[in-house]
Amino acid sequence: MPYVNIKITNENVSSEKKAAIIVGVTKLLEEIMQKNPETTVVVIDEVSTDNWGIGGEAVTVRRIRKNI
């Protein structure tokens, strides 16, 4: 039973896009690993850009800095 946890920043990703990710990951595991799609679990966690850091700073700060 595969369990896949995908973390993305919470920046208005539509339900349709999340559904497409779930379908795509499930199909990929079925095709590549011969895993049963009926027992494949895909979880998408949305994380605030304030809580996601890259290179020692929050994504929120990086994006503000790059737009200046």
Results as ranks from 00 to 15, higher is better:
66 K>H: 07
49 T>M: 07
48 S>Q: 11
38 E>Y: 07
42 V>Y: 12
35 K>N: 07
63 R>N: 14
30 E>K: 08
26 T>H: 01
47 V>T: 11
5 N>K: 15
51 N>M: 04
55 G>N: 14
48 S>L: 13
67 N>M: 12
50 D>W: 06
30 E>W: 02
6 I>A: 04
15 S>K: 14
21 I>M: 06
40 T>M: 06
30 E>P: 00
21 I>G: 00
38 E>I: 01
53 G>R: 08
68 I>R: 13
16 E>G: 03
53 G>T: 06
51 N>V: 00
22 I>T: 05
49 T>N: 09
65 R>S: 11
6 I>K: 06
62 R>D: 10
24 G>E: 09
36 N>G: 04
56 G>K: 05
22 I>G: 00
38 E>L: 08
26 T>L: 01
29 L>Y: 10
44 I>Y: 10
19 A>G: 01
6 I>E: 08
62 R>V: 08
36 N>E: 04
52 W>R: 06
8 I>Q: 04
27 K>S: 04
38 E>P: 00
50 D>K: 12
36 N>I: 05
63 R>G: 13
53 G>K: 04
41 V>K: 10
18 K>L: 10
18 K>I: 10
10 N>T: 04
57 E>M: 14
43 V>K: 02
37 P>Y: 06
15 S>F: 03
31 E>H: 06
15 S>N: 14
1 M>S: 15
66 K>I: 05
4 V>K: 07
16 E>W: 05
23 V>P: 02
10 N>E: 11
14 S>L: 11
26 T>R: 02
55 G>S: 12
21 I>F: 05
26 T>S: 01
40 T>R: 02
7 K>L: 07
41 V>H: 12
68 I>H: 11
18 K>S: 03
7 K>G: 06
9 T>E: 08
35 K>L: 09
45 D>P: 01
43 V>G: 01
9 T>V: 04
13 V>Q: 01
46 E>T: 12
66 K>Y: 03
15 S>Y: 02
62 R>N: 15
56 G>I: 03
68 I>D: 09
5 N>M: 15
54 I>M: 11
68 I>C: 05
15 S>L: 10
14 S>Y: 06
56 G>T: 04
52 W>M: 12
39 T>K: 09
